[in-house]
């Protein structure tokens, strides 16, 4: 019999092959002009939004903290990465890494003092930090001030974005499905009990916040290098809110939920683009209606999997496993 490790490796190689095939087909279609630039743009946006939503979900959904300043960290990553390619002329990969790390460091700096605040207070603090970061960028002329930064080389493409999205989802889901992830989730469930059971709650809150911020920074770097121009206003409260909506609609504590919501909302947003102000009115109404009728979001805390449809067989398997150990 294969060891559990070998079995998992085989399964993962299988998933990797499927992903590679998907990437290859789309890449071929983009290069061959079958997917026109407009659709390509939306594919890129979907990728960036998945990174943003999944990383915010780690903070809001799994850790149960309440951040509404995610766009601030995206801004740090975007400006940080753009500085590296634009002013230091270093390779794109280093720029992305730098932007992400810078956002992660900001996450630690913001998280340490504020994460002891609870619920609404934390929400306001993160909102405040998002606004402060934006306010500072506006005031630094070296990085373009209020007019923003333009002429950033277009280095991000489908390949970069696809694989970095995969990496983000993989890292965050591996984190969540480990003892560290369980420690993170226990804080959401009952912070006092978690602390009493030996979980260093401050450490795990800051860790979740930092990992979340880091990937927001990565998304920012990708954004900057696809759209050549970034402005402080791109990363305002409305952007944070957009990300929050994806997380909540998808289900807080469900990675697949965030992915589905990021895809659906990006498409919805693109198809309503022509309606200008009406787009946001429809968006707002949709949001209110969903919150009124399904406040836990699409997936709740569950994950989407094909075994969901054959729940019974999975239960049986689980029980046998349980008794085998019990005997």
């Amino acid at each position: 019999m294969m060891s559990m490790f070998e079995r998992k490796i085989k399964k993962q190689i299988g998933i990797l092959l499927i992903l590679a095939a998907f990437w290859g087909v789309i890449d071929f279609m983009i290069k061959g002009g079958i997917i026109n630039p407009y659709y390509e743009l939306n594919l890129i946006l979907i990728g960036i939004n998945i990174i943003l939503a999944v990383s915010l979900n780690l903070i809001n959904g799994f850790n149960g903290q309440f951040s509404i300043g995610h766009a601030g960290f995206m801004a740090v990553g975007a400006y940080g990465a753009a500085m590296i390619t634009l002013k230091a002329h270093l390779p794109f990969a280093i720029a992305l890494l730098f932007g992400a790390l810078l956002a992660g460091i900001c996450g630690i700096l913001v998280g340490l003092p504020t994460l002891r605040l609870r619920g609404d207070y934390l929400a306001i603090a993160t909102l405040g930090f998002g606004e402060i970061i934006r306010g500072l960028i506006v005031n630094i002329d070296y990085i373009g001030g209020a007019y923003g930064l333009s002429g950033i080389p277009k280095l991000a493409n489908w390949t970069w974005i696809f694989w970095l999205t995969v990496l983000t989802v993989l890292v965050i889901s591996n984190f969540v499905n480990s003892t560290h992830g369980r420690a993170t989730i226990s804080i959401r469930e009952n912070e006092i009990a978690a602390e009493a059971m030996g979980i260093n709650t401050t450490k795990y809150k800051v860790m979740a916040f930092t990992i979340g911020s880091l990937f927001a920074g990565l998304a920012g770097g990708l954004h900057a290098h696809y759209f050549y121009t970034i402005q402080p206003n791109t990363f305002n409260f409305l952007k944070s809110f957009d990300i929050l909506v994806m997380v909540v609609l998808g289900g807080q504590g469900s990675i697949t939920g965030s992915i589905i919501a990021a895809i659906a909302l990006t498409i919805l947003s693109a198809s309503l683009q022509k309606l200008a102000a009406l787009r946001l009115v429809i968006y707002a109404l949709l949001l209110i209606v969903v919150m009124l009728f399904r406040p836990q979001g699409l997936m709740g805390t569950k994950e989407f999997s094909f075994s969901m449809f054959s729940k019974k067989s999975k239960d049986k398997e689980g029980k046998q496993h349980g008794t085998a150990i019990g005997q």
Partner: peptide, 11 residues
């Protein structure tokens, strides 16, 4: 409730 409030705001 908070998200709804933001929704009303946008509306």
């Amino acid at each position: 409730a908070l998200i709804t409030a933001i929704g009303v705001s946008l509306f």
